Amino acid sequence: MPVTDQSVGQETKREATSGGIQVIARAAEVLRLLQAAPSGLTQAEVVERIGLAKSTVHRILGALEGEGLVTVAGTRGRYRLGPEIPRMAASVRSAMIVDLRPYLEDLSRQLEETVDLSVLEDHQVVFVDQVIADRRLRAVSAVGAGFPLHCCAPGKALLAALPATALEDAVPNRLTAETPHTLTTRPALHRELDVIRRTGVAFDREEHTVGISAAGVAIRTAAWGAAAISVPTPTQRFTGREQALADALLHAKDRIETDFGPVKSAW
């Protein structure tokens, strides 16, 4: 088959498209790398961890910095996620809250308990939405409040779902004792996270607040990434209901992940 100007042009266009996709994929890989390193990375550290040529990393970082997606901080030139990332994240979070509100309401009606929606932010769980139970005795956390990851159900659920490298960065060396029931050693926490990975459900048995217990699950979808749904209750209503709470949460998780599609990339 003879080679024509048209076929050469089409091949060149395909190569350009393929190259553009590869650049986007590499830029996304750099952003995920910086997400897992809140203190920032130097260009040399990015090169070492990502396995690309120094010139390629330099071009990618320069382009991302120009778009506000990364920024350079400190005298050593450590790269961190830039100011455009929180703005994008806020938009995604607003969409997530709107999307998930009906599921939270269904779960709250079913269990007659408060249902929380939370996300992982700055090494803590931050509550971003809540459906409050119509009961005189109920558990309520303020939207916008942050809890330590190691001692609450949504925090442990999110920790259990993290990749190993991100998990080590997220768990502090010193685990504060919020109550006499809090897990305060890393080995004990890691043992519990192993259980959560097997069962899919995390429990807080008065580990954050005396008198309040909770169950929670991590959810991941292609629409807005990772979050956690949890059901906090007075301990007197929690004891003996653990399996019912777990079953209801897992069913809600399956519905959400089926309706919005599975995650296709790493956290």
Rank of each mutant, 00 (worst) to 15 (best):
D5K: 15
Q6N: 05
Q6W: 14
S7K: 14
K13Q: 13
E15N: 14
A16E: 10
S18D: 11
V23G: 02
I24R: 15
A25I: 07
E29Q: 08
L31F: 11
S39Y: 10
G40W: 01
L41K: 04
Q43I: 09
A44H: 04
V47D: 10
V47T: 12
V47F: 13
E48I: 00
L52M: 08
A53S: 06
K54L: 11
S55M: 03
T56Q: 07
L61Q: 14
G68H: 02
V70S: 03
T71I: 04
V72L: 13
A73W: 02
R80K: 11
P83K: 13
I85P: 01
M88C: 07
A89S: 09
R93C: 04
S94K: 13
I97M: 07
D99P: 01
L104K: 11
L104A: 10
L104D: 01
E105I: 00
D106N: 06
L107N: 08
L107R: 00
S108M: 05
R109W: 15
T114C: 11
T114N: 07
T114Q: 11
L117E: 14
D122S: 03
H123C: 03
H123F: 05
V126C: 04
V126H: 02
V128R: 09
V128K: 08
R135H: 01
R138V: 15
R138T: 15
A139F: 13
V143L: 06
G144N: 15
G144Q: 13
G144F: 12
A145V: 13
G146L: 07
F147K: 02
L149W: 08
C151W: 09
C151T: 12
A153I: 04
L159I: 03
A160Y: 12
T165Q: 13
E168I: 11
D169T: 15
A170L: 14
V171G: 00
R174P: 01
T176V: 14
T179A: 01
H181G: 01
T182M: 05
T184K: 14
T185P: 10
R186K: 13
R186D: 12
P187N: 14
H190T: 15
H190F: 15
L193C: 14
L193A: 07
L193P: 07
V195I: 06
T199Y: 13
A202Y: 06
E206V: 10
E206W: 09
T209G: 01
V210T: 13
I212M: 14
I219R: 11
R220E: 15
T221K: 13
T221N: 06
W224P: 05
T233Y: 01
T233H: 04
T235Q: 09
T235K: 09
T239W: 14
E242F: 00
Q243I: 11
A244F: 03
A246I: 03
D247T: 13
L249W: 01
K253W: 00
I256S: 06
I256N: 02
T258C: 02
D259S: 09
K264N: 11
